[in-house]
Computed example of a mutant assay.
Amino acid sequence: MKEINDKAREMMKGYCRVCKVCDGRACAGEVPGMGGLGTASSFKSNVEALEGIRVNMRLLHDATEPDTSTSLLGYDMSMPVMAAPIGGISFNMGGAITEDAYTDAIVGGCKAAGVVGCVGDGVPPYIHEAGYASIKKNDGLGIPFIKPWEGAELDEKLELARAAGCTTFGMDVDAAGLITLRKMGRPVSPKAPAELAKIIEKVHSWGARFVLKGIMTPDEAALAVEVGADAIVVSNHGGRVLDHTPGTAEVLQEVSEAVKGQLVVFVDGGIRTGVDVLKMLALGADAVMVGRPVSVAAVGGLQEGVEKYMETLRGQLVGAMVLTGCKDIASVDINVLF
Rank of each mutant, 00 (worst) to 15 (best):
G120R: 09
A105D: 07
I127M: 10
Y102L: 03
A112T: 05
S90D: 15
P144V: 05
H128K: 10
G87L: 07
T98Y: 00
G109S: 04
A133Q: 11
C110K: 01
A96E: 10
G140Q: 00
K111Q: 14
A130P: 10
Y126I: 13
G94C: 12
K136S: 11
G120F: 02
S134K: 02
G108Q: 05
I106C: 08
A96N: 12
G122W: 01
G114D: 10
Y102I: 11
A101L: 11
G95C: 11
G142V: 01
E129A: 13
D104L: 00
Y126S: 11
Y132L: 15
G108N: 04
G95N: 12
K136D: 07
P124S: 03
V107D: 04
C118F: 03
C110N: 07
K111M: 07
H128C: 03
G109K: 01
I89Y: 03
G108I: 00
S90G: 09
G140K: 09
L141D: 07
G88H: 10
D121G: 07
A112V: 08
G142N: 02
I86H: 00
V123S: 13
G95Q: 13
V116F: 05
G131S: 06
I86L: 13
P124I: 04
S90R: 15
D100L: 12
Y132F: 15
I135P: 09
I135K: 01
I143R: 06
D139E: 14
M93V: 08
G140F: 05
C110G: 06
I135E: 02
T103A: 09
F91M: 15
S90Q: 15
P125A: 14
S90N: 15
G117L: 05
G140P: 06
A112Q: 13
A130R: 11
F145N: 04
K137H: 05
H128W: 15
E129K: 13
F145Q: 06
D104Q: 12
A130M: 10
T103M: 11
F91E: 12
G117I: 02
A113M: 00
K136W: 08
G88S: 07
G142C: 09
D104H: 10
G131R: 10
G114F: 08
F145H: 12
G95V: 12
C118W: 03
I106T: 00
I86Y: 04
G95Y: 09
A112R: 15
K137E: 06
K136L: 03
V116W: 02
K136G: 01
K137I: 03
N92E: 14
I127P: 06
E99G: 11
K137R: 15
A133P: 01
A133Y: 02
I106G: 02
P144H: 12
V123T: 14
